[in-house]
Design a protein around this nucleic acid. Structure first.
Lengths: 150, 150
DNA sequence: TTAACTGCAAACCGTTTGCAGCCCA
DNA sequence: TGGGCTGCAAACGGTTTGCAGTTAA
């Protein structure tokens, strides 16, 4: 954890940005909730618990900055809210998501499922792939069981 | 074209909705610009050329309705605007997109690239896939050539 | 007849921005 | 002492909603 904060601090410094207390608090919230997909508002409320004086605009500015540095990915599940997802260490690709249409749960898939598909797109369509976004919408394991029982 | 409008008309009637002149004008704009990925505002401006008295709210309501009927898919490329994409006839799956990060062009892929991947997700993660969203971000053929020349 | 539908304008809400003050190099 | 940074509040822009009037089955 401290290691990862140090790393981010260096990334910031390398572009002459500072790791201010507000920014550090924001990063810590992201680290502590790595499994969730927090919106800016979510992050704001969690940061506010530790640093009540922080402003929403600062959270937005920090998330934007972290997004530029590729520390987080800004994602969008189509509900009109941006969510921010910490990149796993060493992850070169954006990970995938399973969104449950029953309960809204979001599961992550780290495996690279698209290697073959990307090769196909490059050769067949002549499109040079830089990144991808893959989301499956469906029914998660838990909700399938509930449906069976009901 | 008329055939497709008839079909949509029937779909509406089956749920006791009407195909009003405003709705028909909206559908026609979508049909005439099937290759584009129009925002609600885009649709509004195009409809207004034919039916100047139409209101923006009606366009939104129509697009929402068509989206519920699965006549169009509401998509989002992360630029804060929803776009509406007519489903191809008989398409059971959402199609994929190639978004160029240089020029912003959006190309469509109709082929179902994810058959194997979906099977994997169902067996390995126990997730019942209903639909998917796949977008590749990268450099399109045209922009690759421009870069080489420059 | 009456429920669906419409246009308008206001409201909404997530996000961005202008600004004056602050803090640290 | 000056540029990065902050909190605040106002502005912004896409979308939704309340409402009174209209239309179509």
């Amino acid at each position: 954890m401290e290691h990862r904060i140090d790393k981010i601090k260096k990334q910031l410094h390398s572009q002459s940005y500072k790791l201010t207390p507000q920014r550090e608090a924001t990063v810590r919230v992201l680290l502590e909730n790595e499994e969730d997909h927090l919106s800016a508002e979510d992050v704001y409320l969690l940061v506010k618990e530790k640093a009540p004086e922080i402003g929403l605009a600062t959270v937005y500015r920090t998330l934007e900055l972290l997004s530029e540095l590729k520390v987080v990915d800004k994602i969008n599940f189509g509900d009109g809210v941006s969510r921010y997802d910490l990149r796993k260490e060493g992850a070169e690709h954006f990970h995938h998501h399973l969104v449950c249409i029953e309960c809204g749960a979001v599961e992550e898939i780290e495996e690279d499922l698209l290697g073959d598909v990307e090769k196909l797109v490059e050769t067949q369509w002549g499109f040079q792939v830089k990144d991808h976004r893959l989301t499956f919408h469906g029914v998660c394991r838990v909700c399938q069981e509930v449906t069976v029982k009901a």
